[in-house]
Design a protein around this nucleic acid. Structure first.
Length: 650
DNA sequence: ACGGCGTGTCATAGG
DNA sequence: GGCCTATGACACGCC
């Protein structure tokens, strides 16, 4: 029976997964939430109470296996849960944005989000994200997280291989967006020249390959990082008007998006979206060759105002490519990104970076949590207030144990005793120990003899049975839950107890030096006692200093990490802008090239014959006119123009 | 058994 | 010079 159940369960769920994979919708939740006892019992197990308990334990394991090796039912149950979660995960991954939309749609007509029925309202494809929505606040939070999640998926989806099928479909939109992104034609000619000249020389690549690769890696790194931090970034980091970093286009091949009412709103920034991994950008190499759309001839009228005195032929026709007048397509333009955007490679790298960043973020989160915990642990016990100093001598205080306390970075330890936590010295146990010691009068003569010895000599310490443990106690990290109070004491507390020091280690360590000396003067203390007290004070202060030092070090590391992240974000943004400029320039280059050929091709000599491009070239004059000049003269001027920027650099 | 990590301690420098 | 803090280096215990 058990094996049959397991077989049936696995079979059903695997079949469900298969159906999901081929696109058939199977709402497993319906089966689970409906009152179909046999099936629910098969999948969830016979007892909900029993299930609840074990499910709690499931959180502590990796995948649910091995929790209860003796229980076959448990194994069955966890297998079912695991497969069920896989089905749900599939569903979530396929329709990332519907959860947000569902909440909004559900909220408007009813004025509340209390009744999030997965099957009501629009034909919602996913309900898993709604199950926890119990109130408006939760809903908002859910929306935000899901928003980030869908953006994450969009980024990931944009890298995914299936995108390549939409490249040509996507290209017209790309062109239009690029056309909008091209700088206005009324821009100063000088700027245009400066921007164009490096590209328009034809064979000269604007980047070397290594630089391009580094740039790409940086962008991909930041893509991965933004996947993790997108929500925070949108909320805090990016200016609202920054289209480059805040516009995340929806994944073009997400089928559900097209049925969602927010579709247009989400796509609003699509034309300016400049994710390097978007299909538009991946089509760049194609854009430079065969799939370029024909350029609109009417734009040619603005040619004069766009470019200054520039030798167009020299720019557009490198000497080795100028042979044929009928070459309407023109020379192949250098593509700075060509060959680098292999999709499979991008997939791999991007996912690797994503994993790395996720790991990093969890570490960072834990460190931050530790930092906060540490800070919260700084709130100090009121029993350390100065008013209680004189009266609390020998009384108990509730300082924390040495294993977990952390002092603040305050440097006022010497002057503000009340604000410094007692680090590592349990006054409770010490008081108890002092009473014990004081009660053990019988030890006094031997103890006095011992006090002449050096407390640091373990062999001498061990000769006294009562103090035998002192010299061998190397347990720095005592468990706070240890029942034996002796084990909670630090070594110095043991020593202080052994040496009958008449005040607490708290006072020894934290009193200002004047009060400390005053305290010492009140007692007749042996040299060994005084030496121990001074050591306790030194060690105690040093211990706090070390804790401060480590905390500072950690803070510094975290700050540096944050700075690096910020700089990487800036770098990625600048690189995205750079790539966008390059795309714009390439478009301009192709447009001007096309216009040049059109104009040149219409020119006729006195005999009505076309001019040979190998002998003549068009030159752009400063007054806006276009001149036809001999090729040799045009080449000379082009070389002269190339030299000028280089000389300037020197 | 071994390495990473947290913590306490010592030595030392500098204020 | 004494006191205090900061920090590198090391030892120890725990996981």
């Amino acid at each position: 029976m058990l094996s049959l159940k397991k077989y049936l369960t696995e079979g059903l769920l695997q079949f469900t997964i298969l159906l999901s994979l081929i696109g058939v919708r199977v709402d497993v939740d319906t089966y689970l939430t409906s009152q179909l006892p046999p099936l629910r019992e098969i999948i969830l197990g016979p007892s909900s109470a029993y299930t609840q308990t074990q499910f709690h334990n499931l959180r502590n394991t990796l995948d649910g296996y091995g929790i209860h090796p003796k229980s076959i039912d448990l194994d069955n149950y966890f297998t079912a849960r695991r497969l069920l979660s896989q089905v749900r995960a599939l569903d979530r991954l396929q329709v990332p944005t519907t959860e947000v939309s569902a909440w909004l749609v559900h909220r408007d007509p009813e004025g509340s989000v209390s009744g999030s029925q997965p099957s009501s309202g629009l034909a919602l494809e996913s309900s898993s994200g709604l199950q926890d929505v119990t109130g408006p606040d939760n809903g908002v939070r859910e929306s935000e997280t899901e928003q980030g999640f869908s953006e994450d998926l969009e980024d990931l989806g944009a890298v995914a291989p299936p995108v390549s099928g939409d490249l040509t479909k996507e290209f017209p939109a790309d062109i239009s967006s690029l056309t909008e992104a091209v700088p206005s034609e009324s821009e100063p000619p000088g700027l245009q020249n400066n921007l164009l000249s490096p590209l328009l020389t034809g064979t000269e690549s604007p980047f070397d390959l290594e630089q391009q690769w580094q740039d790409l890696m940086s962008i991909m790194e930041m893509q991965a990082m933004e996947v993790n931090t997108s929500t925070n970034e949108i909320l805090y980091n990016n200016p609202p008007g920054d289209p480059l970093s805040t516009n995340y286009s929806l994944a073009p091949n997400t089928p559900i998006n097209q049925n969602v009412s927010l579709h247009q709103a989400s796509l609003g920034g699509c034309s300016q979206d400049f994710s390097l991994f978007s299909p538009e950008v991946e089509s760049l190499p194609v854009a430079s060759s065969s799939t370029l759309l024909p350029l609109v001839p009417s734009n040619s009228t603005s040619l004069n105002s766009t470019f200054g005195s520039t030798n167009l032929t020299g720019l557009f026709f490198p000497p080795q490519l100028n042979g044929t007048a009928n070459d309407t397509a023109g020379p192949e333009l250098p593509d700075p990104l060509g060959g680098l955007l292999d999709e499979a490679m991008l997939d791999e790298i991007s996912l690797m970076d994503l994993a790395i960043e996720e790991g990093f973020n969890s570490v960072q989160a834990s460190q931050l949590k530790e930092e906060f915990d540490s800070d919260s642990g700084l709130s100090l016990d009121s029993s350390h207030s100065p008013s209680s100093l004189s009266s609390s001598e020998g009384s108990s205080s509730s300082s924390s144990s040495s294993s977990s306390s952390s002092s603040s970075a305050s440097s006022s330890a010497s002057s503000s005793f009340s604000e410094e936590g007692a680090v590592g010295y349990s006054s409770d146990s010490e008081t108890l120990d002092l009473e014990e010691v004081e009660g053990a009068v019988g030890y006094q003569p031997e103890y006095s003899k011992f006090c002449r010895m050096s407390y640091q000599d373990p062999s001498q310490l061990s000769c006294l049975p009562y103090l035998e443990h002192v010299g061998h106690n190397h347990t720095y990290n005592m468990a706070p839950s240890a029942l034996d109070s002796d084990k909670q004491m630090s070594r110095d507390e043991h020593r202080a107890r052994a040496m009958k020091i008449p005040f607490t280690n708290d006072k020894i360590i934290n009193l200002p030096v004047e009060e400390f000396n005053e305290l010492l003067s009140k007692y007749q203390l042996s040299e060994a006692q005084l030496s121990l007290i001074r050591d306790i004070r030194r060690r105690g202060k040093n211990k706090m200093a070390a804790q401060n030092c480590r905390k500072r070090k950690l803070d510094t590391i975290l700050n540096l990490k944050r700075d690096v992240e910020d700089l990487q974000r800036d770098k990625a943004r600048l690189l995205r802008e750079k790539v966008e400029f390059l795309r714009s320039l390439r478009q301009m280059k192709q447009k001007v090239q096309s216009l040049y050929q059109e104009v040149f091709g219409r020119l006729r000599d006195e005999n009505g014959r076309p001019y040979s491009p190998s002998q003549y070239a068009l030159q752009y004059a400063g007054d806006g006119s276009v001149l036809l000049i001999p090729r040799t003269l045009a080449d000379q001027q082009a070389r002269r123009q190339e030299r000028k920027p280089k000389d300037r650099r020197k």
